[in-house]
Amino acid sequence: MNRRTVLCCLAAAVLLPALTATALSLGQVAMSPATALRALFGFGQGGDVLVVREFRAPRVLAALIAGGALAVSGRLLQRLFRNPLASPDVIGVTGGASFGAVLLLALGASQLMIPLAALGGGLVAAGLLGGFAWRSRAAVGRLVLVGLAVQAGLAAAVNLMIVRFPAELASSALQWTTGSLYGRTWTEVRAGGTAVAVLLVAALLLDRRAAVLDLGDESAGGLGLRPDRARLQILLLAIALASLAAALSGPVGFVALAVPHLVRLLAGPPTPGTLLLTALTGALLLLGADVLVLHLLPLRGLPVGAATATLGAPWLLFLLTRHDRSAP
């Protein structure tokens, strides 16, 4: 792990609790970040504990988990496809999750079912991708094209529903597809958090294989790796992470696209260390955006996806231009 990665990880590790505490402390019942952090673990006044643990913590934790999962999913896919534009959009997961969620909205199902619908939709889309693209070998070009097709079809279905819905329903559908952390529960956060943690460990373990895969199929084969099998493992991981994230926060596409690039520009080429940094940065970005729309901006009801993109884009573009000048 190089020095810049370590420094960035340290910075992220300091920022993360600070931002979490701030996020927990903001709201109608004002308290200091330190009080909020104590209340999260059940210490302090009963009222504070109730507000923090019951109302604020699920949303904050959901943002952290979803942000990290989205960012890692984007990184896995960009590396796998060797394409800087890859993100869960490309494999249809975003479209599938949106389709599932919006469909259930249309059917009038309860809010509690939406995350499950998103998760299911994402996995179904991945299944469609597999059904069409898998043909004993996982050629990258075919995966990408079929993924695009699945995504386009599902996105069109969502679009159609938004156009056809009554305005009220169209609005909540649009809200969800832009990204929304509203109404998260502890159950969702616990289940999602556990699953994402397991998948992150798996991603770290598979990082070695990803590095060997970077050498091209021939060299990877010569080193005893089955390229197709390794690709499948990584792809499944990315799909699961993106679907879980979509269930928690809606498909915030920008995190998955931009965070891997941010990390690459900050800390250099992919290593297990930068994988960790990617997760941390994604979590920070999504939570920061959520704090922004929830507490700092005068506009009510701004979707978190809008803030994420607005917050992340200038940063990414700045790094891109700076990186450019230092390049040979």
Binding site: A211, D214, L215, G216, E218, S219, G221, G222, P269
Partner: peptide, 10 residues
């Protein structure tokens, strides 16, 4: 071990 003709350098 194998050294391909045109290996891909990451």
């Amino acid at each position: 071990g194998l050294l391909p003709q045109q290996p891909v350098t990451p």
